[in-house]
């Protein structure tokens, strides 16, 4: 089986316990307006174009064999002297991904780390994901799946036997706001979280905090009430919004909406509420 992957980050310290390799799947069914990896949203490979680096030398056009409409052959990205063009997304087989993953097994073992499948939404390629998870388990590698949860629960049932940790992104508790900024309602997402909390599985909930959107105390209290009803996850991480992905919007010619980063004080206050 194959899947389109837009990045494999080795030696990652942030997506779960220990030292990890994070595999980023391309394609997502949420369209979060604040997404810091907007190139992860489309399912197919894309050409990213960093205008500020382009010297208008025209070399890329000379090599292009499909000037009228781009077929994402990637040729221009190899010829560009300045790195202004880059290909985002590449097709991999599960074995190719496993070959990369296996290189860092000693680091996982020594740090209680492992592999995190992320995206985009990795669970949309459920069969490819399952194959990878199974292969990791065959190699005794700790597995984490980072998901936004907008998928049928049956998909979770398919991966749970091979998944040690679910990193579950909750964008917003208010359904109307959720719909406005992510393009979908949060009912299915919260239903799935509910079901997951009720079973015996390690869950880390992650909430991106965006000023003026979901940074109110009510929001966090609502999440807390949800936990009170269905159980607490092992960990909740509140992640302040940052603008570091802005340049990528221009690179894929996507309209950018700017948001504000919550203050440190605010973050600490919210953190206290959920602890």
């Amino acid at each position: 089986m194959t899947g389109i992957i837009f990045d494999v980050q080795r030696g990652s310290y942030v997506n779960g316990p220990g030292i990890r390799t994070t595999v980023f799947f391309k394609g997502c069914n949420l369209k979060c307006t604040w997404c810091h990896n907007p190139e992860s949203q489309d399912f197919e490979p894309q050409i990213m174009f960093y205008k500020s680096k382009c010297t208008s030398c025209g070399i890329c056009r000379n090599f292009c064999e499909s000037k009228e409409s781009c077929i994402i052959c990637g040729r221009c990205t190899r010829e560009c002297l300045t790195g202004a063009k880059a290909l985002c997304g590449k097709k991999y087989t599960a074995d190719e991904i496993m070959e990369i993953i296996k290189k860092d097994i000693p680091y996982y073992k020594n740090s209680s780390g492992g592999v995190t499948f992320s995206g985009g939404e990795c669970m949309l390629k459920i069969d490819f994901l399952t194959e990878l998870l199974q292969k990791c388990k065959e190699n005794n590698i700790h597995t984490a799946v980072d998901t936004a949860g907008y998928i049928p629960y049956s998909s979770f049932e398919q991966i749970l036997p091979y998944t040690d940790l679910i990193i579950y992104d909750v964008k917003c508790m208010n359904s109307t706001v959720h719909k406005k900024y992510t393009s979908v309602q949060n009912t299915l997402i919260l239903d799935n979280l509910k079901s997951l909390l009720l079973i015996d599985k390690e869950i880390w909930v992650r909430v991106p905090i965006i000023s003026g959107i979901n940074d109110s105390e009510e929001e966090i209290n609502e999440l807390k009430s949800f936990y009170e009803m269905y159980g607490y996850p092992q960990k909740t991480e509140l992640l302040p919004y940052h603008s570091l992905g802005e340049h990528k919007y221009e690179a894929i010619n996507k309209e950018l909406t700017r948001f504000n980063t919550p203050s440190n004080d605010k973050m600490q206050k919210l953190m206290k509420l959920i602890k």
């Binding site: 990652s12 942030v14 810091h36 990896n37 940052h242 570091l244 802005e246």
Partner: peptide, 22 residues
């Protein structure tokens, strides 16, 4: 290479305002 949460990129790839931010 700068890493902040799940985001990661080479510093020199970022545009000026973000570099300043970092």
């Amino acid at each position: 290479r700068v890493r902040v949460s799940g985001f990661s990129d080479y510093f020199v790839n970022l545009n000026e305002s973000i570099q300043n931010d970092i």
